[in-house]
């Protein structure tokens, strides 16, 4: 099995999955705590639109998807703040508009719909070195952001009004959180696909929030669980010949079930 690591695509996949596994769950905590789950679905639709544009215009799908998602998130937060409308409602509107735009591109430019939808499945072993470096750099940025703003994030996560009255510029931090989450979701979609990205982002955060008593604990444990799932899932996929994303999702689901059942038993 280890000899497979001498193949460049496999090695790149392992490298990216390891870094993403240990860092991306930070945004899973943001998603859960800030109740940004509608955003995650909006970004999935954004990925289809990005993919359709990329295939129609022959751009790089990874960076186009990333850009489309960033624009959508900026538009969503700006509209939500200026019109004082719930982000969930704006997300739903954006979902509809993005999927309709995607199909317009598919229809007008004769893009094979199957190729666009294949973006939702991820392609861990088809990453270019530029994309690998991009993911690694973003992992570093994510950790740096979390470390630099950990105290302010703690305040915002607890209560946005209390954070405001403690002097924290919670509005600016909220924008930053949304932007980072958007980039992470777009990158995770490319790695393990939109349908399984919850395994890399949400499940580690969810598991950590079941057993940790502090926010610091949740962040640290989310990253540890994410790393463990990524590595174990990757090698499981090599061992029993299943897709890497399924391996990660399988490991995360099994651990989640065990911890959830134990948590319930402990509580009762």
């Amino acid at each position: 099995m280890l000899e497979m690591l001498s193949l460049a695509p496999i090695l790149k996949g392992l490298l990216v999955l390891t870094f993403a596994g240990f860092t991306f769950p930070v945004t899973g905590v943001y998603l859960l705590r800030m109740n940004l789950l509608p955003l995650r679905f909006m970004l999935m639709h954004g990925a289809i639109l990005g993919g359709a544009i990329a295939l129609a215009m022959q751009y790089n799908p990874f960076w186009t998807t990333m850009l489309v998602n960033l624009l959508m998130v900026l538009l969503m937060t700006k509209t939500s703040r200026s019109m004082q409308v719930d982000t969930g409602q704006i997300s739903m509107f954006m979902m509809v508009i993005s999927i309709s735009l995607a199909f317009i591109f598919i229809y007008k430019f004769n893009v094979p719909a199957q190729d666009t939808l294949s973006l939702l499945w991820g392609s861990l072993f088809a990453l270019s070195w530029h994309e690998v470096i991009g993911v690694l750099a973003f992992s570093g940025l994510l950790l740096a952001f979390q470390f630099r703003y950990r105290r302010k994030l703690r305040a915002v996560f607890f209560d946005r009004e209390i954070a405001f009255s403690s002097g924290v510029n919670e509005g600016r931090l909220y924008y930053a959180i949304i932007l980072l989450t958007a980039i992470t979701v777009a990158a995770a979609m490319k790695l393990i696909g939109a349908l399984l990205l919850d395994a890399l982002l949400l499940l580690p955060a969810l598991i950590a929030s079941l057993h940790a008593k502090s926010l610091r604990g949740v962040i640290i444990w989310s990253c540890l669980w994410g790393g463990i799932f990524s590595l174990s899932g990757f090698f499981l996929s090599l061992a029993i010949d299943i897709p890497a994303s399924s391996g990660v999702a399988l490991m995360a689901s099994v651990v989640f079930l065990i911890i959830y059942v134990n948590h319930k038993r402990f509580k009762s």
Partner: peptide, 27 residues
């Protein structure tokens, strides 16, 4: 200006007591 509300924070996301107290020093 410090603000003490009704303490009915609806979320139950894990946070320790000392972390809540430390929010006052966030800035």
């Amino acid at each position: 200006v410090g603000y003490v509300h009704q303490e009915n924070v609806k979320n139950t996301f894990p946070i320790s007591a000392e972390e809540v107290a430390a929010i006052g020093l966030s800035e």
